[in-house]
Simulated scan of single mutants.
Amino acid sequence: MRKKRTTAPTAMTDIAFLLLLFFLILAISTHILPIPLNPATSDSSIATEETKHILMVGLDGSLFYEGNPILLSNLPHAEEFSLLADKETPFKILQPVIQALKEKGVTTLHCVVEQSR
Rank of each mutant, 00 (worst) to 15 (best):
T108D: 05
L18G: 02
T7C: 09
I98Q: 02
F17M: 14
N74G: 06
A40M: 12
E103W: 00
L109E: 01
I46W: 07
K104P: 07
S44C: 13
P39A: 01
H53W: 00
Q115R: 09
G61P: 03
E50Y: 08
L26G: 14
D60M: 05
E79M: 07
L75P: 11
S44F: 10
A47E: 14
P69C: 05
T51P: 14
Q115T: 14
F64M: 08
S82D: 01
F17A: 12
F91G: 01
Y65E: 01
T13K: 05
A78S: 13
A16F: 11
E114M: 07
T107Y: 00
S44E: 15
T108L: 02
V106E: 01
E50G: 11
K104Q: 09
T41N: 10
D86N: 13
Q95V: 03
N68D: 15
S82R: 09
E80P: 02
I25A: 14
A40Q: 09
V97M: 10
H110N: 10
I70G: 00
T41K: 10
E88A: 11
S44D: 15
K92D: 08
L21W: 07
M56A: 15
L24S: 02
I32T: 14
P39G: 02
E79G: 08
L18K: 08
H77L: 11
I32E: 02
N38G: 10
S73M: 02
P90C: 12
I28C: 07
L83G: 07
R2F: 07
T48Q: 08
I15Y: 05
N38M: 15
L37S: 01
L75T: 03
L24K: 06
I28P: 00
K3S: 10
